[in-house]
Structure formats: C-alpha cells, structure tokens
Simulated scan of single mutants.
Amino acid sequence: MKRIISSLVIVAGLLGLAELGWAQATAKPLRPFTFILDFLPYGEYTPYFAALEKGWYKEEGLDVRILRGAGSGDTVKRIAAGQGDAGSADFSPVVAARANEDTKVKSIAVYFRETWLSIFVRTDAGINSPKDLEGKTISTTPGNAHHVLWPLYAQLAGLNGDSVKWVTMDGAAMGPALITKRVDAAPFAHVHEARLQKQAKEQGASLKRFAYKDVGMDLYALTVIAREETIARDGAALKAFLRATIRGMEYAWDPKNIEEGARFVVTRNPEVDLDAAVGAARVATLYGLTDDIKTGKAALGQFDSAKVRKSIDVYTQYLKLKRKVEAEEVYTNDLLPVKR
C-alpha cells in the first residue's frame, strides 16, 4: 500500500511539473514597450513607476522600459521617429509640431489637466514680478514647453518677451545654473519646487516662482503621446499601457501612497532625492486630480473637446503656427479604458 501511495505521489508530482512546464512554454511572451519621459525621472512620474513596480504593466502583457527625456519637443521628435512606443509631452509642442511640420503624433491621454509651468528666480535677484524678467537670461532645453509658450506668457504678463536671452543646456544643469547665478531664471514645472529649494538652501540661497497659470492660462499640460502609425497598427498595446498607467494614477496619487510612489521612482533612479520626490509627488496631485476628476465630470486621462479647441486657438494665435490644426489631428480619447 505504501508503495502504491508513494507511486501516486510521484506521478502527481510529475504531472504537476509537466503542467507547469507546459504553461510556461505556452505563456505569451511580454511585448517590449518603450516609454520616453519629457524630462528627468522625478517625483511627478510616480504613477508610471508604481505601475512598473507593482507589475501592472506585466499583467497587461508589456515589458515597459522608461527612458529619461530632454524636453517635450524632443520627446515628440523621438516618438515621431519611432524611438519609443509612447511618451510624455506637453500638449503645446504636439499641436505645434503637427501645425508646422505635419508631425503625425497625437496625445492619447491627459496626465496633468492644468498648466504646471513656472519660471524660478533667486529671491536676491531683484526680480519681483514677471515684467522684471525683461532683459534677463533664462535657461532652456530643446523644445522646452516653457520656451514654446513664452510668447503667450509674455503677452498675458505684460512684458517684452523678445528681450530675454534663452540659454540652451542639459535639463540637469538648469537648477545649478540658476542657483550659482550663471542664468537669471530657469523654467521648471511646479513639481520641482521642493527639489530646487533644497538645492538652493544647501548653497545658502532661496528661490521664488512665477506660475504661468497665474496670468490666466487654462491649458492642458502633460499628455501621453504616440505616433499615428502605432495607434493604427498597435492600438491594443497602447490601450494596455493606458490601463496600467491609469491604475498607477489611482494608486500613486492616493494621499496614503504618496511616499511609496516616490520610493518606486528612487528604486529605479537612485540619484533622485527621496524628499524632493515626495514633494513633487504631492504637487503632482494638484494637476492630475483636478475638480473635473473629483466631481466625476471627466475620467482620468480624458480630454474635454472644448478645452482642446481652446488650446488650439491659443497656440495658433500666440505661437504663430503655420496653420490651425483640427482637433482630431492632435488628440484622441479612443484608447482610454473609461470615458465620461
């Protein structure tokens, strides 16, 4: 009897191993998927890293690789060139690229629903209002959204925008260049304030911020972008990416998960300061979870067609675009898991 039981156990074990081996052999391989940020990997991107660390991209069949960016305009060009499956970029360079160069890239989801752009200056620089920026030097990266929208900001703020001198440099050099007085001002999103203030304090300095939003800009900010060719050919992969990303938004932007999300970023990017990442993550919720999301008027990622058209009108007028694009040329809600 013991021999029979032992034999049955062995057979059952062999069958189990065989089933496991068969399942592994027949499991669908993960699809490689490259996502390009618009800037350096800081705390504002916690939803992407939460989806990565929690395994939600893998659950959707994707092997996601997140790459650093060098400005929204540069990311638009890289996505258009097929260097990534999707990317992060401000909405304005997407519209500008389509209008001026017929770049066939669309925004497929909203990430930040209000403009987060700001100009930072040292508190000891004597720059007390936007008009005081006239004649000053401002750092920038190629295709930087702040630079792209500067003519509109200058007009709304009542200053001579042509009087400033833009100094192009790597994104990682902009903060130190401002703090050490190599430039008078630097364009950063609001989410970078905690990191910048910490760096400035270490040098015995402090900074202040002029927000684009404060002069009346009501425009979309960061969006998820993809090539039209990818949308048409591989829409299923983009839908899978958005499902996991929105799951990441829901999780990482929950107040109780802010620090955990920041730690996910630091795990993948050890050079990032945790305190600064936490600060950026907290600010990010202000732009990702706006009133239209909280009240249920819109779903996460969803564009409002009227605001899209308003944005296009503003960009066409103030950025002196070659033509006015149709809304359908630059955005779609069709790949989102939920729409309201």
Results as ranks from 00 to 15, higher is better:
D162W: 06
S163K: 06
S163L: 07
V164P: 02
K165T: 12
V167W: 00
V167G: 00
V167I: 08
V167E: 01
T168Y: 04
T168N: 04
M169C: 05
M169T: 04
G171C: 07
G171D: 13
A173W: 14
A173F: 11
M174E: 15
M174W: 12
G175Q: 02
G175H: 04
P176Y: 06
A177V: 01
A177H: 06
A177M: 04
L178A: 08
L178F: 03
L178D: 01
I179P: 01
T180I: 09
T180R: 04
K181D: 07
R182W: 02
R182D: 02
V183F: 01
A185K: 00
A185M: 01
A186P: 02
A186T: 03
P187V: 01
P187Y: 01
P187M: 03
F188M: 08
A189S: 14
H190M: 10
H190N: 14
V191P: 09
H192F: 15
H192M: 13
H192A: 11
E193R: 05
A194C: 11
A194N: 13
A194G: 14
A194K: 15
R195A: 14
R195S: 15
L196T: 05
Q197T: 09
Q197C: 05
Q197L: 03
K198T: 13
Q199C: 06
Q199S: 11
K201L: 04
K201Q: 06
K201M: 06
G204L: 12
G204E: 08
A205I: 00
S206V: 08
S206K: 06
S206G: 06
S206Y: 03
S206D: 08
L207P: 00
L207H: 00
K208P: 05
K208T: 09
F210I: 01
F210K: 00
A211W: 09
Y212W: 12
D214E: 10
V215D: 07
G216I: 00
G216S: 15
D218F: 14
D218S: 11
L219G: 00
L219H: 00
Y220L: 08
A221P: 01
A221E: 05
A221S: 10
A221Y: 12
T223I: 10
T223H: 08
T223S: 05
A226L: 13
A226W: 09
A226P: 08
R227M: 10
R227F: 12
R227I: 03
E228R: 08
E228I: 03
E228Y: 15
E229W: 11
E229N: 14
E229F: 12
T230D: 10
T230E: 11
I231D: 01
I231T: 03
A232I: 11
R233N: 14
D234G: 03
D234L: 15
G235P: 03
A236I: 12
A236Q: 14
A237W: 05
A237Q: 08
A237V: 04
K239H: 13
A240M: 10
A240V: 11
A240H: 10
F241D: 09
F241G: 15
F241E: 11
L242W: 15
L242Y: 13
L242A: 10
R243S: 07
I246M: 06
I246W: 10
I246A: 04
